[in-house]
Amino acid sequence: MSAFKDLLSTNDMIILDGALGTELEKRGYDVSGKLWSAKYLIENPQVIQDLHETYLRAGADILTTSSYQATVQGLKDYGLTEAKTLDLIALTVTLAAQARDKVWADLSEAEKARRPYPLISGDVGPYAAYLADGSEYTGAYELSQEAYKDFHRPRIQALLDAGADMLGIETIPNVNEVKALLDLLADEFPSVEAYISFTAQDDQHISDGTPIEEVAQLCDSSQQILALGINCSAPALFDGLIARIKSVTEKALVTYPNSGEVYDGATQTWKSAPDNSHTLLENALRWHKEGAQIVGGCCRTSPDDIAFIAQAIR
């Protein structure tokens, strides 16, 4: 694999897509329950493909598969066989690929010349997503290194077998899970390229309290992690976190915040007011000046946000 490396080497600013689950919710789809948006892989996969197409038309360069909540264990708990769970994880890549094919075919040659060919990033969420209790924002869970690997291995394999161009390992709140994922990639998926991003509750640590510099140094030593950063965290925290990450690595930086609202895992709702002090575009441009190469949005952001970024840089 070299598609992600090539994208980084030829583009000064790369646009990720935005929220999936909260955008479906905004459009009237029920995303409650442990599967969250992944239940639409079973009930109505077309709505996921439609949203992928919307983000691509908005200008996204990297399309994230709908596999964040789609884990083998989570889908088995829903009553599916292991074979069916793997088929559904593979479907997340198929839906993204179909969306890319459709949108790219509709673009004029002039439009294609103004943007890179979009990549499909196989989404690897944390063990916390399976727990569905909001622990993405605390990191308050602990498995053995082998248990973490056993949890992540089949989904990663299914995403790659289905044709994902790269992996997006995201919303990771726990340093020991980071260690397990890096070892898993090195030992069992040595050719895969990936970015990894973490959640944070202050501007110095990831969510479990580990200093961000310590986590960034772990990632800096990985040949397969080509970019790292922060996602689904309050925008106000990013400036300090970016500076600390930059102090220990020269790898590309990734920034895609949530709206600044706070997630309540017990009620599966977003609370407090969004941070409207700056738009996502304003934040993305500022963080780009501070070193972020890959920018986008996470929970409670929208295709309009992504479109504003694309219009500003193209």
Score class of each variant (00 low, 15 high):
235 P>V: 05
278 H>W: 00
42 I>T: 11
308 F>K: 13
73 Q>T: 14
242 I>Y: 11
137 Y>G: 02
70 A>F: 06
59 G>N: 03
166 M>E: 02
2 S>P: 00
263 Y>N: 07
42 I>W: 06
205 H>M: 06
258 N>T: 06
166 M>W: 03
34 K>A: 14
246 K>C: 08
224 Q>Y: 09
47 V>G: 03
12 D>N: 14
52 H>A: 09
305 D>R: 08
45 P>A: 10
194 A>Y: 01
49 Q>S: 13
148 Y>H: 12
37 S>K: 08
64 T>Y: 04
197 S>W: 05
168 G>I: 09
275 D>A: 00
173 P>W: 12
295 V>M: 02
202 D>S: 11
186 A>N: 14
179 K>A: 14
187 D>G: 00
217 Q>Y: 06
227 A>L: 07
14 I>W: 00
109 E>W: 11
239 D>T: 15
230 I>W: 04
87 D>H: 01
131 L>I: 09
137 Y>T: 06
17 D>Y: 09
262 V>Q: 05
138 T>N: 03
97 A>G: 12
297 G>M: 08
183 D>Y: 12
260 G>Q: 00
284 A>P: 01
10 T>H: 15
264 D>F: 04
136 E>A: 02
313 I>G: 05
240 G>T: 03
65 T>E: 09
240 G>Y: 05
98 Q>P: 03
289 K>I: 06
174 N>P: 10
149 K>A: 14
14 I>T: 07
297 G>H: 12
193 E>R: 07
68 Y>C: 10
86 L>H: 04
257 P>V: 02
208 D>S: 11
49 Q>D: 04
44 N>K: 14
55 Y>V: 03
60 A>P: 04
171 T>C: 00
263 Y>S: 11
145 Q>M: 13
293 Q>Y: 06
88 L>T: 02
45 P>G: 08
214 E>I: 10
92 T>S: 15
155 R>A: 10
225 I>E: 09
298 C>D: 10
46 Q>I: 10
135 S>R: 13
181 L>I: 13
11 N>G: 04
100 R>S: 12
291 G>E: 11
151 F>Q: 07
242 I>V: 15
93 V>F: 10
98 Q>V: 02
6 D>I: 07
149 K>W: 04
252 A>R: 03
300 R>Y: 08
144 S>L: 11
200 A>Q: 11
293 Q>V: 13
21 G>R: 01
196 I>V: 14
119 L>C: 05
307 A>K: 15
140 A>M: 06
3 A>H: 05
248 V>G: 04
133 D>A: 07
104 W>D: 03
53 E>S: 15
54 T>H: 09
84 K>A: 14
22 T>Q: 02
233 S>N: 07
184 L>N: 07
54 T>E: 15
123 D>P: 00
139 G>N: 05
82 E>A: 08
5 K>E: 13
253 L>I: 15
199 T>A: 04
207 S>T: 12
217 Q>M: 14
234 A>G: 12
54 T>R: 12
299 C>W: 04
226 L>R: 15
293 Q>K: 15
58 A>N: 08
190 P>S: 15
93 V>D: 03
192 V>Y: 02
15 I>A: 06
301 T>D: 06
43 E>D: 14
121 S>C: 14
256 Y>M: 05
46 Q>C: 01
109 E>G: 04
178 V>L: 12
35 L>Y: 08
194 A>I: 09
41 L>C: 02
302 S>P: 04
250 E>N: 15
